[in-house]
Design a protein around this nucleic acid. Structure first.
Lengths: 180, 180
DNA sequence: TCTGACTATGTCTGAACTGACATAGTGCCG
DNA sequence: CGGCACTATGTCAGTTCAGACATAGTCAGA
């Protein structure tokens, strides 16, 4: 019954105890590559997870009006996460604005479109370079069962995705007759 | 100021006049491959678009308690769509549940994971076959400026995406030691 | 010593979106 | 002639989510 965001939080907590703030940081990088959430959403979700007894926390004194809370997985939380991992993902509607623009591209001026796709291509190449640096920093492939395996496998997906996307942008540019 | 859904509707209307019902059908296929919306959302958005004078409609008698409304683009609507097409897409947060599961995959039983990825691979191969059939039904590549170009270019993206995704699933399966 | 970045918690509003509910005519098939 | 699928419009309640608002301690550097 927990939302997908709840499982994202459990997945991070499975790698070590964290505050809500730390979780928000993880949701930017590296989890943000495939699941993002703002801190306001995370604090709200943590309250739900605690009500469901999937996480617990210990208070410590910290900055701000409230006490700092270090969250950890409970046994039920770990079991719920384990069960969720191998269940088929619920289908999310595809929403890709660039592809939607492409659908209407026949109405546009080629020169402006060329600029758009050149920008997109550059962004994908940049991300690809970033991922390749990350791949190099993995000293060889982590074994299954190691938390690093999750990070490596998702990186593989990102690498493959950016290559596919960059290639498609390049194809679009050749269609638009701008050369590379 | 119009939402992305609004532009999706304008993009369909640019290919011909439609009722809300027809638009909902288009939002399932083919637009649903990259942008989906339920009919309730579409009727609400059409009212906003009409208030902004980007679309107009003509009533005809039809089934149900309300009159049937055939919507068309106005000159402002077409201009707004044209301007939108070449503007950079606003970044949408990535949300990919399968990749999130992969991030936590190190906790799971390999046999169950293998089943999950085998299912996903089969789904991608099926969609790929569908897209390949669609590609074959295009008798050669439509010229830029032809509405068919938009459909063809998005299909190209889908084809490339499904290949990338299937390849990644296959890589995961080899990692899980199940063979193919 | 002041300023700004970082740590840390939360609330609230509004937009986008999902799925259920509600209504009703037409046309086909058995 | 009955039932079902399709055409066609809409409302409503609830969820998710992004972004703004609010508060306050620590620490480094100018």
């Amino acid at each position: 019954m927990t939302s997908t965001l709840g499982y994202a939080i459990l997945a991070v907590l499975a790698r070590g105890d964290r505050t809500g703030y730390d979780l928000a940081a993880a949701m930017r990088r590296p989890v943000g590559y495939f699941w993002t959430a703002g801190h306001s959403q995370i604090h709200a979700e943590l309250q739900k997870l605690r009500a469901a007894e999937l996480v617990g926390f210990e208070s410590a004194h910290g900055p701000g009006p409230q006490a700092k809370k270090v969250y950890h997985l409970t046994a039920e939380g770990l079991a719920a996460l384990r069960a969720w991992v191998t269940e088929p993902p619920r289908e999310r509607p595809e929403r890709d604005e660039l592809v939607l623009k492409t659908y209407a591209a026949w109405l546009a001026e080629p020169e402006l479109l060329r600029r758009l796709f050149a920008e997109q291509l550059a962004a994908h190449e940049e991300r690809l370079a970033d991922y390749e640096r990350q791949e190099a920093s993995f000293g060889g492939q982590p074994a299954f069962g190691d938390p690093g395996f999750g990070g490596y496998a998702t990186l593989r997906c990102g690498l493959s995705y950016e290559r596919h996307r960059a290639e498609w942008c390049r194809w679009m540019l050749t269609q638009l007759g701008g050369g590379l």
